[in-house]
Nucleic acid binder design. Structure first.
Length: 414
RNA sequence: GGAGAGAUGGCUGAGUGGCCGAAAGCACAGGUUUGCUAAACCUGCGAGCGGGUAACUGCUCCGAGGGUUCGAAUCCCUCUCUCUCCGCCA
């Protein structure tokens, strides 16, 4: 959701933004509905003022009561019309995308993303490399077969030392973020529609969510939803900003219609696990904290010894709620290429406006900005497997995780 | 699952039909004074949406939605949520 004042004052800005995003919303129609709605609202308010004034005379002027009754009839009609227009307006604005930052590249899909830098040495192998699916089966640490049996295709088990490695990675990451000023949360794994709408997952990604039957609840697609929703309707004290939050949670996505080579193994699944970074900050600070989250992501990957590249995500790959997004793509030796492992979005006031998250200012309240960024997910484990593999299929554990795993290598059972 | 209580401004908490957008306290902001890791006193201070250069001013909001009434935080109905006790339970 964006500020409708911008629509009224600078409609061309909105049009250009929608054009860049190939967003088909008819802005002129939107403007007209907004205008009609506001004209009518003023009429309604004038009638209400008249009604209120007369009501105060009623105790000693019985005639006023009759006048009030007449006004009420007229008022009811206008109120109904106004409510209709307002609902129509809300419906139209629900799909309005966020304003893009100036330095977002053009492009229709991820091929338009702009690489900012490559970091780390690619591993060199003098043996045929395996991908994580093969390694996972060899080492008996990933079980997709039984995931499908027990749940569905797209669900899987981490098992044995694989599960231990996963727990180590997630715990280590949470500790790193706590050390960097983040408050750790454990959040609900379900959220109501208002929360999903407010965080921008509805209506834009409606077919991605697992809805609970007969409940106003869906499984969370990310703890971003519950962490940002945490402050819905709050007025934050400015001295508490920025608020840095992190959580580890499972993430559920229906992933309607994504198959093929890119989906081999557990790269794209219905349930994955993520440590998230969320920052609430003053509007002028959001670019700075967007960079901070990126720096955290890079730090973690460097500590883990994973080569990666950073890309500035283009318009077509950005998503409507975001104003700017950085992805990090790690090197996957088994896959033989860079693939997305983190995603870091500056949502500016898009979420805070929908969720009514403000902070106090001398001249009134103002919407905060929110940053939402991955720290690590299972995909990082996949990268570790593929990049740290040995000729016999065993996997060396990255050094920083060894104190937590208690072992430095995962080997196949003889 | 059973029984009861409740939902008011950033927080605590008064308020049972018009003088209530709402007492009081806390917190916060500005000021005065005494001075010294602070206290006392004074003043201001809910949110949202409009109109006006401005002073100022209109509308809405006391969990949500409906109803009664000339008039609802206050009465009625429905729903949601929270808390307490009991039961069950990781």
């Amino acid at each position: 959701m964006i500020d409708l004042k911008i629509l009224r004052e600078n409609i061309e800005l909105i049009k250009r933004n929608c054009a860049r995003r190939s967003c088909p919303i008819d802005i002129d129609a939107l403007f007209a509905v907004d205008n009609d709605s506001r004209v009518l609202l003023r009429e309604v308010e004038e009638l209400r003022a008249e009604r209120n004034r007369l009501s105060n005379e009623c105790r000693d002027n019985p005639e006023a009561r009759e006048q009030v009754k007449r006004i009420k009839t007229e008022l009811a009609q206008k109120e109904e019309k106004q409510a209709f227009l307002k609902a129509k307006l809300d419906q139209m604005t629900a799909f309005l995308p966020n304003l893009l930052a100036d330095d977002v590249p053009d492009g229709l899909d991820d091929s338009g993303n702009v690489e900012l830098r490559k970091v780390g040495q690619l591993p060199v192998f003098d043996f045929p490399v395996r991908d994580h699916q093969e390694l996972g089966e060899m080492l008996d640490i990933i079980d997709t077969q039984r995931g499908a049996k027990v749940a569905q295709t797209g669900f899987y088990y981490w098992k044995g030392k694989g599960a231990q490695l996963a727990q180590a990675l997630f715990f280590w990451t949470q500790q790193q973020l706590v050390n960097r000023g983040f408050t750790l949360f454990m959040t609900p794994c379900v959220a109501k529609e208002r929360t999903l709408f407010g965080t921008g997952y509805l209506p834009f990604f409606a077919d991605e969510t697992y809805q609970l039957k007969d409940e106003d609840l869906a499984l969370i697609g990310t703890s971003e939803q519950t962490l940002v929703g945490y402050h819905a309707d709050d007025i934050l004290e400015p001295e508490t900003l920025p608020l840095r939050y992190t959580a580890f949670s499972p993430c559920f996505r229906t992933e309607a219609g994504s198959y093929g080579r890119a989906a081999r193994g557990i790269f794209r699944v219905h349930q994955f696990h993520k440590v998230e970074q969320i920052i609430f900050c003053r509007p002028e600070d959001s670019p700075k904290f967007h960079e901070e989250c990126l720096a955290n992501e890079e730090y973690l990957l460097q500590q883990l010894g994973l080569p990666y590249r950073v890309v500035n995500v283009c318009v077509g790959d950005l998503g409507a709620p975001g104003s700017k997004k950085y992805d990090i793509e790690a090197w996957f030796a088994g896959f033989g290429g860079y693939r997305e492992v983190t995603s870091n979005t500056n949502l500016t006031a898009f979420q805070s406006r929908r969720l009514n998250i403000r902070f106090r200012q001398p001249e009134g309240t103002q919407f905060v900005h929110t940053i939402s960024a991955t720290a690590v997910t299972d995909r990082v484990l996949v990268a570790i497997m593929e990049n740290y593999q040995q000729p016999d299929g065993s996997i060396v554990v990255p050094e920083v995780l060894r104190p937590l795993t208690g072992f430095d290598r995962i080997e196949a059972k003889k």
